[in-house]
Amino acid sequence: MSLVITHARYQFLETIRIPIAVIGAMFFPAAAMIFFVVPIVGDNAAAATYATASMVVFATSTTCIFSYGIGVAEDRAQPWDPYVRTLPAGSFPRFAGRILNGTGFLVLSFLPVLVIAAVATEATATPGRLALAAGALLAGSIPFTLLGLTIGYALPSKAALAVAQLLFFPLAFGGGLMSAPGQAPGWLEPISPFLPTRGAAELLWASAGGWQPNTTAVVMLAVWTVVLAVAGAAAYRRDEGRRYR
């Protein structure tokens, strides 16, 4: 266990020493809060709460796709990675450390959103609802972690960057994160529940604001989790097989 912490700690140090990487992850969701949420729905408690939840999902999905996708792909290209494999520890501490580190950056990425929501909008949530939302976020972030890992283990770093950039915006917009619950453009509504971002958003809307979640979206979120777990495991094994067998 202490080795997991060690790996997480040094991976965290590696990333945090390039502050722009961290600021980049925090900027987009915070900027969206300031420019769209605060002026448009900031005065409406319910709408601001839903919008904040949407932005948290946006921050989470984006950070997962980028930090795992590009982080893993870049590490795979470095000779440091195989060197670490020769140390007397299996591949578990490095992997677990990566998840721990990724989770840390996840929290950093949505923290500004929460702060802006608390300070500049009427968004509210009881401690009970907040705890529920934290649980929902944990569950909702799993498929995006898996998506990031799949990209990272399956693709070289340049391709991973391109794929991450291609995916994050359509996923966010398509999942209805840029509009109030149920208020996405008409043509989008039939598609939206099939995207994992929508499922995660439904969970957060429900936990933070008492929204009645769309069953299809929640079931699809579970389906995505399973599909991406299989894809991630396959990409990981294929990479191990190519580099270490």
């Binding site: 470095q78 060197y83 020769t86 007397p88």
Partner: peptide, 25 residues
């Protein structure tokens, strides 16, 4: 088996140290 690697040390052909970490780290 990681336990067998407790008494070895390795310098790979390519150095590839994490560029943002300090030497001591």
């Amino acid at each position: 088996d990681p336990a067998r690697r407790l008494r070895i040390g390795v310098t790979p052909q390519e150095t590839g140290l994490p560029s943002t970490l300090r030497v001591g780290e």
